[in-house]
């Protein structure tokens, strides 16, 4: 048993003082999630992203809990600027102030990250499956395995590469489709030409993601989305002193 020394007490007191402004700041973000922004058009986030911030998979509302702060702020800025188009989220992002964006990004980032159990040893992906794309890629089309950028088990890397684990299949599919757009169909004798629909998500840094989405087949999109959605969330914490294997 150790008793706090006066110095220790002072240190603790100082750390509480330091925490106060942080706490107030985080609380702003929490209020925003629950009650919405100052502008009434900034609806409470929890209505769609869930009380726990884990999203609503079936409705295609993404998880925000534990996403990197800079990534969340960047997405809101991208919705505002129209680099990412979405009829639901754009008006909401446009009615948030810069301060509100910073606060809510910080608050969601502070929520627990998705916790994925590593794949069982000896598990081998089958060619053509979603797991194959996730763990092996399609290098003949210059598509690296998704986990090379999105992290082992899709847990995300740093602040530019968001987790895919923890997101629902509908949402993942919708994003891949948004980066693809559709190709133009030339006119035939019987049908009129159909114009190309440009991608509605054009915000990936250096085009790292767009060409991947564009080169996947419809079946591959469904399969890889189902794979990441199926990783689920584990109640057991991952032992961070262990390696995550490729």
């Amino acid at each position: 048993m150790r008793y706090p020394t006066p110095k220790g007490i002072a240190a603790r007191f100082a750390s509480i003082l330091l925490l106060v402004p942080l706490y107030v700041h985080a609380n702003d973000g929490e209020t925003l999630m629950q009650k919405g922004g100052a502008n009434p058009a900034a609806l409470p986030c929890i209505t769609c992203h869930g009380a726990d911030g884990k999203g609503m998979a079936a409705a295609g509302f993404p998880r925000l809990a534990g996403l990197p702060e800079a990534y969340i702020a960047k997405q809101l800025a991208d919705f505002r600027a129209g680099r990412r188009e979405n009829p639901v989220m754009q008006p909401i992002a446009q009615s948030l102030s810069d301060e509100e964006i910073a606060a809510v990004a910080k608050a969601y980032a502070a929520r627990p990250k998705v916790n994925v159990k590593p794949a069982a040893a000896g598990e081998r992906p089958q060619p053509g499956s979603g797991a194959w794309l996730a763990l092996r890629g399609a290098w003949e089309r210059n598509i690296p395995e998704c986990t090379l950028c999105h992290g082992p088990s899709g847990v995300g890397v740093g602040s530019a590469f968001p987790p895919l684990a923890g997101q629902g299949a509908e949402y993942i599919e919708a994003q891949l489709q948004a980066w693809r757009g559709t190709r133009a169909v030339p006119a035939t004798k019987k049908t009129k030409a159909v114009a190309a629909v440009p991608p509605t998500r054009r915000n990936d840094p250096n085009g790292l993601m767009q060409h991947i989405a564009a080169d996947l087949s419809e079946a591959e999109i469904k399969a890889v989305a189902a794979y990441f959605a199926g990783l689920g969330e584990s109640p057991e914490a991952f032992d961070e002193s262990q390696h995550r294997l490729r």
């Binding site: 090379l148 992290g151 082992p152 995300g156 890397v157 961070e240 002193s241 262990q242 995550r244």
Partner: peptide
Amino acid sequence: GQKVGVTSVF
């Protein structure tokens, strides 16, 4: 480079 936990990714 960048790591996830102890595992190097980049």
